[in-house]
Each structure stands twice: as structure tokens, then as C-alpha cells.
């Protein structure tokens, strides 16, 4: 609660007028003190960054040392398409340059390095960590490091493939209060880590669990087994992916119809992000991060899926104690 009493400046009140009307001045103050780290500057993360910079977080740190290429700006509006501008620069640097413009009250900066190389101490500088476009082991490792910190660091992974998107949320032990009619209710949510969530046996999950959950796991496993980086698959990999699906379903005693081949085919064929889905997933993720920082509203637990084919945006609770 340190510094919560500070008042917003007149400039902040004027700029944030419409959103203060949604979440209140208190929440706005907390936002302005929050530090957010993102890894993997693709289209979905670009959308997310735009949303929280506009919302007025305290600082945003970007990590992505990859050098910009033509593919990079296909769904990322933060990267200017002029080779004279982007040539030789890293994705993080280019996005940082654009984001700084969006809201002069937010400090946007770049951190060099690979996600796995940062230690617990480094993650301790942040209140929110969002990782995207990285391998399964790297995601698990970052999540574990965040969990070793004494304060709570909200951890998210996010990925879009073709016209599908997935968000994972780990708020560890999350307590918040909400008003229901006249009374205030205290709520307490316990989140599993990414590793714990993924270890829940598939046959224990409800029959209606989103097919996208299983499909994403199959692709993730495939990339890990083949030593690929995230998104590095093509239609040529389909036979291998389908074979792995069979094996996984057998091991997990899950009927194969829960992981349709057509869905897997879509996910490996088109690895470019679909901009409308980036906007949707980046919007939902932005909203979740704002909820977690401000303590206002019910956060989702613990997966969110969107598929443009059916248009549904679904929350799945995938944890050992399905309570």
C-alpha cells in the first residue's frame, strides 16, 4: 500500500478520465506504480503493450534480441516497414521506439539478453511478467523463477497461431475483494504453475474442455522434441505432429476426437499471426493484467482460448484441485 495516498496529477486525471470512470482513481494509482516485463515482440505482444502503455503502467521493459525482418511487421504495427529504418535493429528496440510515443508518462525500455539467462533477482524488479513465442522449457523456467520471489509476480504466457490464441495465467496465491450488492466479499484463488497445470492428466479434465488446449500442447511438445523454436513448424511437419498426437492421446487415455486433425493442420500450416486475433488476445490479456495490478475485477483462472472459426472466447480452469 506504499504511496497509495498520493494523488493523481491534473494531467493524469485529464488523460485517464474515461478509464478512471471504469476502475477508479485508486486502481489508476496502482497502475502507475507497476513494472511490467514482456518477452517476444510479435503481433499479440505488440497489441498488449499498446494497451497497457495507454492504460498508464509505471514502466514497461521489452526483451527480444531478434533482428527485424519482413515477417516481423506482418502483424506488428509497432515496426515501421521501411528497411532503412528497421534494418539491423532488434525487435525490442523498434517496438520500444514506437511505444514511447504512445504515452509520455510511461517509461519504456529495452533489456538485452535471452529469457533463460536472467536470474531470480532480475525478475524481482517486476510486478508482471508476460512471455510469448518461446519454447516450453523456457516458459516453465521463467515461471519457476517468478515463483521464487517473495512478493507476488503475476506471470502470463500468450501465443497466437493461425486464427487461434491462448493465454495462461499464474497469479499464485491471489486474494481480492469485490462488492456484491451491498456487501464486500473476500475472494481467494490458488493458481497452479505452468508446469503443474500441464501435468494435470488429460482424462481428468471435463469432457467439454477446449480442443485448443490439447492441440496447443501437442504442437508445443512437437517443437520441444524436434528442438525447434516457437512457431518453427510448417505443413511438412503435419505427419509428425499427427503421430505425436496419437501417442499423447494413447498415453493420456484421451479419445483422439478431442484433438481434431483439422485443427492441428491449421496450427502448423499458417504460423503467421492473424491480426484480428492478435487484437482480441492482446486486449483480453491487457485487461487481465490491469485486473491483477489494480485488484479490481475477477481475474481469469487459468487459461483463455479464442478461435476465430467458432468465435468463442473461453476460460478453462486447468488445475489439479479443480476447486
Amino acid at each position: 500500500m506504499d504511496g497509495d495516498g498520493e494523488e493523481l496529477t491534473a494531467q493524469e486525471t485529464a488523460l485517464y478520465d474515461r478509464q478512471i470512470r471504469v476502475w477508479g482513481a485508486d486502481a489508476q494509482r496502482r497502475l502507475s506504480k507497476a513494472h511490467v516485463l514482456v518477452y517476444g515482440m510479435k503481433g499479440t505482444i505488440a497489441e498488449f503493450c499498446k494497451n497497457i502503455v495507454l492504460a498508464g503502467v509505471g514502466s514497461l521493459t521489452l526483451i527480444d534480441d531478434r533482428i527485424a525482418s519482413e515477417e516481423a511487421f506482418s502483424s506488428n504495427f509497432l515496426i515501421p516497414p521501411d528497411e532503412n529504418v528497421y534494418g539491423g535493429k532488434t525487435l525490442a528496440q523498434l517496438c520500444c521506439d514506437s511505444l514511447k510515443d504512445f504515452n509520455p508518462m510511461v517509461r519504456v525500455s529495452v533489456q538485452k539478453g535471452d529469457l533463460s539467462s536472467f536470474d531470480v533477482e532480475f525478475f524481482n524488479n517486476f510486478d508482471v511478467v508476460v512471455v510469448s513465442s518461446c519454447s516450453l522449457p523456457a516458459k516453465k523456467l521463467a515461471n519457476e523463477k517468478c515463483r521464487k520471489i517473495s512478493k507476488r509476480v503475476a506471470f502470463y504466457t500468450v501465443d497466437c497461431r493461425d486464427s487461434c490464441g491462448e493465454i495462461f495465467v499464474d497469479l499464485q496465491d491471489y486474494k481480492y475483494s469485490k462488492k456484491k450488492l451491498e456487501e464486500t466479499i473476500e475472494c481467494h484463488l490458488r493458481y497452479p504453475s505452468f508446469e503443474e497445470a500441464l501435468s494435470v492428466p488429460w482424462k481428468e479434465l471435463p469432457r467439454k474442455t477446449s480442443k485448443l488446449y490439447f492441440a496447443m500442447r501437442v504442437i508445443e511438445k512437437f517443437e520441444e522434441a524436434e528442438g525447434r523454436s516457437a512457431g518453427e513448424v510448417s505443413v511438412a511437419d503435419l505427419p509428425g505432429v499427427l503421430k505425436l498426437k496419437k501417442e499423447l492421446c494413447a498415453v493420456q487415455s484421451l479419445n483422439e476426437s478431442h484433438v481434431p486433425d483439422t485443427l492441428l493442420e491449421r496450427l502448423v500450416t499458417s504460423t503467421l499471426e492473424f491480426p484480428p486475433v492478435c487484437a482480441i488476445i492482446g486486449g483480453i490479456l491487457g485487461q487481465e493484467v490491469i485486473k491483477a495490478i489494480s485488484g479490481k475485477g475477477d481475474p481469469l483462472k487459468n487459461f483463455f482460448f479464442f478461435d476465430a472459426f467458432d468465435g468463442k472466447g473461453i476460460i478453462e480452469n486447468i488445475s489439479n484441485s479443480n476447486a
Partner: peptide, 9 residues
């Protein structure tokens, strides 16, 4: 009341 995230979605 208006927020950026809903508009983006």
C-alpha cells in the same frame, strides 16, 4: 466509460 482493451477486442 471507455477503455482501450474492450475497443481492441
Amino acid at each position: 466509460h471507455a477503455v482501450a482493451t474492450t475497443n481492441a477486442v
